[in-house]
Amino acid sequence: SPTVSMAELDHQVQLISKSHLETCQYLREELQQMSWQNFLQDEVESYQSKPREVMWQLCAVKITEAIQYVVEFAKRIDGFMDLCQNDQIVLLKAGSLEVIFVRMCRMFDSQNNTVFFDGKFAGPDVFRALGCDDLISSVFDFAKSMCSLHLSEDELALFSAFVLLSADRSWLQEKLQVEKLQQKTQLALQHVLQKNQREDGLLHKLRCKVSALRSLCSRHTEKLSAFRAVYPDIVGTHFPPLYKELFG
């Protein structure tokens, strides 16, 4: 774009990368140190034998913890807090879980097909009690395919911001403002991909991930409604209030 200079793009990349690193919940080094810690068979079985509602509640708590970090990330994105409050909420309601799925590739071990959860690395079988094997397996497949792109922290930061600033979310009041922010982020993402000498098709591959993320999130909503239909009181009284605000 003729209106954005290289220096501005560099600055944008630096700012978003810093916000990402300050709010990413776990540093890569920390995760690497814990990478040998997998759940033992009896621990896996203990997760599998938990009542469905207990496992759902545990996952809701973990998702909520991660969302708090995403909210902090959003607040530190240049321009986000200048949006009207309605739009800040709309973007976080629609995008926070998507960012968690993007961030998940940092906590994912492709070789073992495990993800860092509740203190150790867990395979999909740990989540069996949820009764959502198909969704869990899609989430793991998504993480694996994100991992295969080998994104650096700055690329991941820019992509997360791009996802969060989606200007096509329903109920936005100042769509144009969000569009401007998203375009600026996309330019910064392109800039960082070029600077890191990534292959030409990577931006296209990342764009394809956006629809996969939407599908995962709508399937999460469906599974939650099905769960809520059976256990309305559990959701009402035991789920974190922030989780209910976002997905209720």
């Binding site: 807090m81 909420i89 209030p241 605000e245």
Partner: peptide
Amino acid sequence: KEKHKILHQLLQNSTS
């Protein structure tokens, strides 16, 4: 606003 009380609160808290 009432519907997203916690989110509002998180957004208003100053970044640490």
